[in-house]
Amino acid sequence: MKFKFSATVFAILMCISLIVNAQTKHKSKSAAKAPVNSSNADASSIMAGKKVFVQYCLSCHQADGAGVQRLNPPLIKTPYVLGDKNKLINIVLKGFSEDVEINGEYYSNTMPAHDFLKDQEIADVLTYVRNSFGNKASAIKLAEVTSARAAIKK
């Protein structure tokens, strides 16, 4: 009887661990797939943003947004990309050269200001970045870029 009980418990435990394993696997699978079609994001803005990304961002941040160890920060699920939109817009407009930790790593290259890009190009490229490489976040609107640029000029 005792034996029967422990065997049953054992079997239940095994089943739980199997389910947990399967779930973890499922999670990592869905993360690897870039969910390009965010419900909030404008699909045409994403498409236009990809062109801007390839021309101005890719050589440092790389095609997969993974960046370069110690030099150029990744764009994958970082608080800088997914967090405060105004801060993110300002990084593009003003550049970035602060010594900050991003998900446990530090990056030393200076990002030059990209204020020469049009407001619509900035909105597009940031919407693309926020909805690529496994990211899923709301679109950046033209008006948000315009007001951020106006605030800098003041």
């Binding site: 034996f3 054992f10 079997a11 095994m14 394993n21």
Partner: peptide, 23 residues
């Protein structure tokens, strides 16, 4: 030993070996 119990036990043992080797 009850046949059913031994079957559950064997199945569990196989599962464990499989998971262990995976780990």
């Amino acid at each position: 030993m009850n046949k059913r119990v031994s079957f559950i036990f064997l199945l569990s043992a196989f599962l464990m070996i499989g998971l262990l080797s995976f780990k």
